[in-house]
Design a binder for these strands. Sequence first.
DNA 1: GCCAACGTTGGC
DNA 2: GCCAACGTTGGC
Length: 151
Amino acid sequence: MNYWLMKSEPDVYSIDDLKRDRNEIWDGVRNYQARNFLKTMAVGDMAFFYHSNTKPPGIAGLMKISKAMVVDPTQFDPTNKYYDPKSDPEEPRWHTVTVTYVETFAHYISLDQLKDTFTPDELQVVKRGNRLSVMPVAEAVAQRLLNLAAE
DNA sequence: GCCAACGTTGGC
DNA sequence: GCCAACGTTGGC
């Protein structure tokens, strides 16, 4: 079982939205490195829900991967902002996962706290200028995050 | 709202 | 295949 961190702007989709929806397709990722991580996710993996572009940015909760290798439907929808006319329905370019709500942390872990606790090597999200929206989290780091969240 | 970082596009 | 222009991300 692997741990991940996935970013979303709460104005667009927040952990409260996921709590309400229970399950959601994590659509709209259009970065190959992030997509490649999405494609390696397995059912049962856990992902930290990171709120980006908000004040303060940070980790808001936890979700679980409930379906792997989901074809992102938005790539074939011409009315969608994530429409990709170059994606071939026979060979879809963008795969993602379905996530299921697990919990909202009692203690929101702000980016400032993440920077105080982890080095950029331990947790890529604290790296300055980091724009990757999906990234792996090492088991030991994940455990420390879960401890922080419970404080 | 600004802007640094950086991925993508497209002319050559 | 290079690289300038452009667009997006995301912290501040």
